[in-house]
């Protein structure tokens, strides 16, 4: 057996020793659950467009509906089971973002409604808002500077 005296060698050995995630199975589950959530969104979208709602408003309705669904499933202690099965399939759609706000809110209820629920709600999803919003400000400033979509310049 190879010499494992250095940390690097040990890390290599551990990597070999550790079983890999069942990536094919995970990807398959992520694909169909993620796809399905998007189709549910599409059904809601089509229905409200059919009812004559404007496009922007309909997109918001889709988001809010899926977030409500995610909140409901999280509150009845089911979302984590879907997440364990589907991995990124339930994480990447807006449902995962909602779950990452709702689950700490529930968890830290025991530390009170202000410093527990109120403060800890964003422990997982906070970074998404920080980076998403900051990126949007930069996009806005860049657009302002060039007053055109950047792609037109390239």
């Amino acid at each position: 057996m190879e010499n494992l005296n250095t940390n690097k060698d040990y890390q290599k050995y551990v990597n070999k020793k550790s079983p890999n995630s069942p990536i094919l199975k995970n990807c398959f589950n992520a694909f169909w659950v993620g796809g399905l959530i998007c189709v549910i969104g599409q059904i809601i979208y089509d229905y409200f467009i059919f009812r004559g709602f404007p496009q922007d408003l309909t997109n918001t309705i889709v988001s809010i509906s899926l977030i409500f669904l995610s909140a409901f499933l999280t509150a009845i202690n089911v979302f984590n089971k879907i997440g364990k099965f589907a991995g990124a399939g339930s994480l990447i759609p807006i449902t995962g973002f909602a779950n990452s706000i709702i689950s700490p809110a529930m968890e830290y209820k025991s530390e009170g409604y202000v410093m527990g629920v109120g403060a800890k709600m964003f422990t997982v999803a906070g970074p998404v808002l920080v980076y998403g919003i900051s990126a949007s400000v930069i996009v806005g400033l860049v657009y302002l500077l060039f007053n055109t979509q950047v792609i037109m310049l390239v």
């Binding site: 069942p22 979302f79 984590n80 089971k81 879907i82 779950n99 700490p104 968890e107």
Partner: peptide, 12 residues
């Protein structure tokens, strides 16, 4: 993570 977060545990 919070218990209700829908994440996967790696095999290790």
């Amino acid at each position: 993570f919070p218990l209700e977060l829908g994440n996967q545990r790696p095999p290790t």
